[in-house]
Simulated scan of single mutants.
Amino acid sequence: MSTRIPIVEGLPELPATDVLDALRAAFSELAGDKAAQPPQTVTLLPGGGDVIAYQAATSDAYGVKVSPYLPQADGRAVVTAWTLLVSTRTGRPLLLCDAGALTVQRTAATSALAVDELARPGAAALAVIGSGPLARAHLRYARVVRDFTSVRMYSPSLTTAAAPEGVSVTGSAEDAVAGADVVLLCTSAAEPVIDAAGLRPGTVVTSISTNAPRAHEIAPAALASLDVYGDYRPTVTATAGEMVIAAERGLWSAGHLRGDLPELLAGTCPPPGGDRPVFFRSVGLGIEDLAVARLLLDRS
Rank of each mutant, 00 (worst) to 15 (best):
Leu14Ile: 02
Ala142Ile: 01
Ala189Gly: 07
Ser131Asn: 08
Pro270Glu: 00
Val115Thr: 04
Leu102Arg: 06
Val86Phe: 13
Gly49Thr: 02
Val145Tyr: 01
Asp260His: 01
Cys97Gln: 09
Pro46His: 09
Leu257His: 00
Val104Ser: 11
Thr206His: 04
Ser67Trp: 12
Thr159Asp: 09
Glu117Trp: 12
Val205Phe: 03
Phe280Pro: 09
Glu288Trp: 00
Arg89Glu: 14
Glu248Ile: 06
Thr3Asp: 14
Thr107Arg: 03
Arg120His: 10
Asp289Phe: 13
Ala180Pro: 08
Ser253Cys: 14
Ala114Pro: 05
Ala57Ile: 09
Val244Thr: 02
Asp298Asn: 12
Ala180Val: 07
Leu14Ala: 04
Gly171Arg: 12
Glu13Trp: 11
Asp260Leu: 08
Arg136Tyr: 08
Ala99Ile: 12
Leu158Val: 08
Gly91Thr: 05
Ala127Met: 07
Pro220Met: 03
Pro270Asp: 06
Gln40His: 14
Gly132Arg: 02
Val86Gly: 10
Pro164Ile: 14
Ser2Met: 15
Ala254Asp: 02
Tyr69His: 14
Arg143Lys: 14
Pro220Leu: 04
Ala189Trp: 01
Gly10Trp: 06
Gly48Met: 13
Thr41Cys: 13
Glu248Phe: 01
Gly47Phe: 13
Ala224Pro: 10
Val104Asn: 12
Leu23Met: 06
Ala53Glu: 10
Ser87Met: 11
Leu70Tyr: 07
Pro71Tyr: 12
Val278Leu: 12
Val78Arg: 11
Gly10Lys: 06
Gly286Phe: 04
Glu217Ser: 04
Gly166Tyr: 09
Ser157Arg: 06
Gln37Cys: 13
Val145Ser: 03
Ser2Ile: 15
Ala123Arg: 01
Ala135Pro: 02
Ala61Asp: 04
Tyr154Gln: 02
Val104Met: 12
Arg143Ala: 09
Thr160Cys: 13
Pro39Val: 08
Gly250Ala: 06
Gly259Trp: 05
Thr210Met: 04
Ser207Glu: 00
Asp181Ile: 07
Val244Tyr: 00
Ala112Cys: 07
Ala123Trp: 05
Ser59Glu: 15
Gly63Phe: 11
Ala25Arg: 14
